[in-house]
Amino acid sequence: RQGFVPAAYVKKLDSGTGKELVLALYDYQEKSPREVTMKKGDILTLLNSTNKDWWKVEVN
């Protein structure tokens, strides 16, 4: 499932696989259909980080 999360809630990881991955630093509950819920410690695939406030991710 793809959607947006606050950029301040995730940290980029060095995956070494060519995929950009991020680590969820905090729990986040989606507040609109365009967002996704994540739990602290989740590893997500980063799809787009051009917006400084909201990053598009895919929940694996």
Rank of each mutant, 00 (worst) to 15 (best):
P33A: 11
G3Q: 02
G3K: 03
G41C: 07
K31V: 08
T17V: 13
K52P: 15
M38L: 08
A7L: 02
W55S: 02
T50P: 03
D53I: 15
N48Q: 09
L46K: 01
P6A: 02
K52I: 11
A8Q: 12
T45C: 09
V59T: 15
W54Y: 06
R1L: 07
V10F: 06
W54M: 05
Q29L: 12
R34Y: 14
L46D: 00
T17H: 14
D14G: 15
L21E: 08
Q29I: 14
G41I: 01
V59I: 13
K56T: 07
L13D: 03
D42E: 10
G16R: 10
W55L: 04
V36S: 02
L25E: 04
I43Q: 04
D27A: 07
V57N: 00
T45M: 11
L13N: 02
K19C: 12
V5F: 01
V10Q: 01
W54A: 02
R34A: 12
L23Q: 13
L21Q: 11
K39C: 10
N48W: 07
V10S: 01
V59H: 15
V22C: 12
N51E: 11
L46H: 01
S32R: 09
D27L: 02
N51S: 09
E30S: 15
R1T: 07
K40C: 07
M38E: 00
L23Y: 10
Y9R: 05
K56S: 07
Y26T: 08
L44S: 02
L44K: 01
K56G: 05
W55F: 06
G18P: 09
L44G: 05
T37M: 05
Q2R: 15
T17L: 13
N48K: 07
V22M: 04
V59Y: 10
L47C: 06
G41N: 06
R1K: 11
P6K: 04
W55N: 01
G41S: 03
G3V: 04
S49Y: 08
S15V: 13
A8D: 08
P33N: 10
Q2P: 04
T17I: 12
S49M: 10
A24S: 05
W54S: 03
G41M: 03
F4D: 03
D27S: 08
L21D: 03
G16S: 14
W54I: 03
A7E: 03
L21P: 01
F4G: 01
S49V: 07
V5P: 02
L13A: 04
K56Y: 15
K31W: 04
L25H: 02
R34E: 12
K40P: 03
V36E: 01
A7Y: 03
E35R: 05
W55M: 03
G3E: 01
V59S: 13
E20L: 14
G18A: 12
T17C: 15
K31S: 09
P6L: 05
R1I: 07
K12S: 06
Q2D: 05
M38I: 14
E30K: 14
T50V: 09
L23N: 02
Q29Y: 14
E30M: 13
K11Q: 13
T50Q: 12
I43C: 06
R34V: 11
K12Q: 08
K39H: 12
Y26F: 13
G3R: 03
T37G: 09
E20D: 13
Q2K: 10
R1M: 07
L47S: 02
G3Y: 04
Q29P: 06
V22Y: 10
S15E: 10
K31Q: 14
L21Y: 15
K11W: 09
K56V: 13
K19D: 09
Y28V: 02
E20Q: 15
D14Y: 14
K56M: 14
D42G: 04
E20K: 13
K12T: 07
V59K: 13
K11H: 09
L44Y: 11
L23D: 00
V10Y: 01
Q2T: 11
G16I: 14
E30T: 09
Y26G: 05
E20V: 15
K19Q: 12
D42R: 03
W54C: 06
F4A: 02
A24W: 01
P6V: 03
K11D: 05
L25N: 02
S32I: 04
E35I: 04
K40W: 03
E30A: 15
K31M: 11
Y28R: 03
S49H: 10
K11N: 06
Y26E: 10
